[in-house]
């Protein structure tokens, strides 16, 4: 589904990713772990197509196409979803309005008729239940005045509505208490299917108690320096990042 080869990327002239390789197949869950400043969020941004990051080398193929040729909105419409570490506030725009616009933009791109108000409301109710989001939340402006937990739940709710093929969740666990963490993890697990894939980016092993990854990668200084199964995460938790840094 996603194939990253020798990817280098920079922001403001500073190179962050330095020859990164990653293969993600349908039905898989990958966890990318690493210390602060290792390039985790940069990787998410580059996959999502944020233009402030400049790809200086390498290639990224998504479902057989050159991902780097696509503008960010096309990537989204092709099924790439990014869960933001810091979801931004959009005052005056309700979540319902925001998501209906997003869904209909995607449908237009795919040559489908726009969803009617009634259809959308029905879908929204269904997904609200699924990810355990309060019904009042969707009438509020996007992320405005939301608590940290509400913001992250809202990200998962949007993911549920958009039904992406590839989800990149950037530090979705940061700033969550254990209850919120469970709700978020549960949502992610429910959305897991044979034909989609998830990349979970996290600093802590904690999230992986709830989301069992098929692969764990350690990102350090812009490269993946170690890959393994879920046991790698546990080993990391015990020994700390210094362990892999030294081995490097």
């Amino acid at each position: 589904m996603l194939s990253i080869k020798n990817l280098s990327a920079a922001i403001n002239g500073k190179t962050i990713l330095k020859g990164l390789n990653l293969e993600v197949k349908e039905g898989e869950v990958h966890a990318i772990m690493g210390p602060n400043g290792s390039g985790k969020s940069t990787l998410a941004s580059v996959i999502a197509g944020r233009e402030t990051f400049e790809v200086t080398e390498g290639e990224v193929t998504y479902l057989g196409s050159n991902l780097l040729d696509m503008p960010a909105e096309t990537r989204a419409r092709e099924g790439i979803f990014m869960g933001f570490q810091y979801p931004v506030e959009i005052p005056g725009v309700s979540i319902a309005n925001f998501m209906r616009t997003a869904i209909n933009e995607k449908r237009k791109y795919l040559g489908l008729e726009p969803m009617t108000g009634a259809e959308f409301l029905k879908l929204m109710e269904e997904k609200k239940k699924m990810v355990d989001i309060q019904s009042k939340l969707t009438n509020r402006s996007v992320n405005e005045g939301f608590s940290g937990g509400e913001k992250k739940k809202n990200e998962i709710f949007q993911m549920a509505l958009l039904e992406p093929k590839l989800s990149i969740l950037d530090e979705t666990d940061s700033g969550l208490d254990i209850d919120a963490l469970k709700v978020v993890a549960n949502g992610i697990n429910l959305l897991r299917r044979k034909d989609n894939a998830t990349v979970v980016i996290t600093h802590y092993q904690r999230l992986l108690d709830f989301i069992i990854p098929d692969f764990v990668h350690v990102l350090f200084d812009g490269r993946i320096i170690r890959s393994g199964g879920k046991e790698l995460a546990i080993e990391l938790e015990e020994k700390g990042y210094d362990w892999v840094k030294k081995e490097k």
């Binding site: 999502a48 960010a72 909105e73 989204a76 931004v88 005052p91 925001f98 997003a102 995607k106 958009l162």
Partner: peptide, 23 residues
Amino acid sequence: DQLFYCLQRGIDMEGAIGLIVNG
């Protein structure tokens, strides 16, 4: 940040500005 958030949800630049300004 606001613009990219919209783009990432599949809303193009014009749509994003329209949405934010209307909000």
